[in-house]
Design a binder for these strands. Structure first.
Lengths: 254, 254
DNA sequence: GCAGCGGCTTGCGCTAAATCAAAGCAGAGA
DNA sequence: TCTCTGCTTTGATTTAGCGCAAGCCGCTGC
């Protein structure tokens, strides 16, 4: 949303190329999407039902209630997934980033909307053919089940946050989980002394994710600043000065 | 599920009752568990990894953080699924009833606890062997993916409720969704003039499910009573006198 | 029958967060 | 450079829902 003169740039769609190479070059080693469930030579089959899509920041590319035609792998950028009420109240159910899979919470229609926060690169799979491919490669289906399982865990965690945590607990919980996502390989038990985090989403997104108002989110951040636990270099870049003490405010599980 | 229930073969591992009859009388025609993904003769294979379990009301049978050893199908009674914080705050993430599947929101450990609300009959499947069976019967895995998908939709709906709805919207939303679960076959578009609902869970459960206090739940019910929209014959039995008008208070989706 | 107990309801302040309002602030365009 | 615009922060006030406390209601056991 920030660097957005291109809010009207079109969505581009391309075939996934180089099935011959056996590599989907959009998917890097840390990709947790569909690709890493397959061997190199099998990825070519996946490419048969895949397209690459580029979404400009701010664009809605999944609309709640529309027929659920595609799955998506996020290859670049960040996405907000949300539901909304008739009067405009909005609940962001998740932020998706590189390697995340999109399109499981679905019956015949999408149960959610999705918008690009930054410019976003996606791999798009048509649902029907993909379900065919499952028959050939059960590993894919297993992968999807694993993804769904993991999403359920996160969803329940979020319900706990939304139903029972205070404002500061919500904000610190978010910071710690976002830290974890940003550092997929924590390496050892020791938390670093400080960690810099990019927060691509707006305060409004954050508020709608945490079930708060932007003012309350802002005030919570300010309090954490005052207490010397975090610092902002930019509105969208926070440093956890005392990760331990931030973590202590999350009212962790159990 | 189909007319023919769980097993044409005896349940071999822990036959609680009537294996000789060749029928799992616990699974009635409306069962939406694992069984209905399989043909009659294949169900026998499922039985290889199944046990029947009876849980008395109030008993905790899944403890958050314990190694995730089993899946469960609910065959009788009601279950509350929840997470809790160190200080005792609790979030009920769902109420499970006949036909519901339990145990997906799991990594190596259970991410939730589960307790019997009423006396409960379960079919229990060991995870490891069940995953083996998947190889033989991919339909099972597909079924599980469908279940997970459906759970995701419900979870997101609940996040919207917890993050953005008012007390009365939460209570009426619950009533309408519980009504839907209780009447799996709505038959035609017309809502009945009145519908009687059994609410097996306590007010505390309800409060912890809706992210409210018992007092607020009670007050919301009282207001709906005052407005002539519902009536209680018993604390655990409510009648929706004006389902339409109750539905109008839910702040429905989109 | 009735005393005790656990769960539910009701009344009454109280408070965390929402709402309303007014500045800051930084990037985009002229 | 300066202004405009959209986002963010901060302050003042309001309020929906909380927390406490008292009373109620229906069961259980004596």
């Amino acid at each position: 949303m920030r660097d957005v003169p291109f809010a009207r740039r079109p969505i581009t769609i391309n075939p996934v190329n180089s099935p011959t190479s056996g590599q989907c070059e959009d998917c890097d080693a840390r990709h947790v999407g569909l690709c890493d469930a397959l061997s190199d030579e099998d990825i070519g089959f996946l490419a048969r039902v895949a397209q690459r899509v580029v979404i400009p920041a701010g664009k809605t590319f999944i609309e709640e209630g529309d027929p659920a035609s595609h799955f998506y792998d996020v290859n670049q950028g960040n996405v907000r997934v949300f539901k909304s009420l008739a009067d405009g109240r909005r609940q962001v159910t998740g932020f998706m980033g590189v390697g995340d899979f999109l399109g499981l919470a679905v019956s015949a229609q999408y149960a959610f909307s999705a918008e690009a926060i930054t410019d976003v690169n996606l791999c798009r799979f048509e649902r029907a053919p993909l379900l065919q491919v499952f028959a050939e490669f059960p590993a894919l289906e297993r992968k999807l089940l694993d993804v769904a399982t993991h999403e359920m865990v996160i969803a329940q965690e979020q319900m706990l946050l939304l139903g029972r945590k205070t404002a500061i607990e919500r904000v610190t919980s978010f910071l710690m989980s976002w830290l974890e996502r940003s550092e997929p390989f924590p390496v050892g038990a020791s938390k670093p002394a400080a960690a810099k985090l990019s927060l691509p989403m707006s305060r409004t997104d954050l508020a709608d994710y945490l079930g708060l108002t932007i003012e309350t989110v802002s005030r919570s951040f300010s309090q954490l600043k005052r207490d010397g636990l975090i610092a902002f270099t930019d509105v969208h870049e926070v440093t956890l000065l005392k990760p331990q003490r931030v973590a202590a405010l999350t009212a962790g599980d159990r």
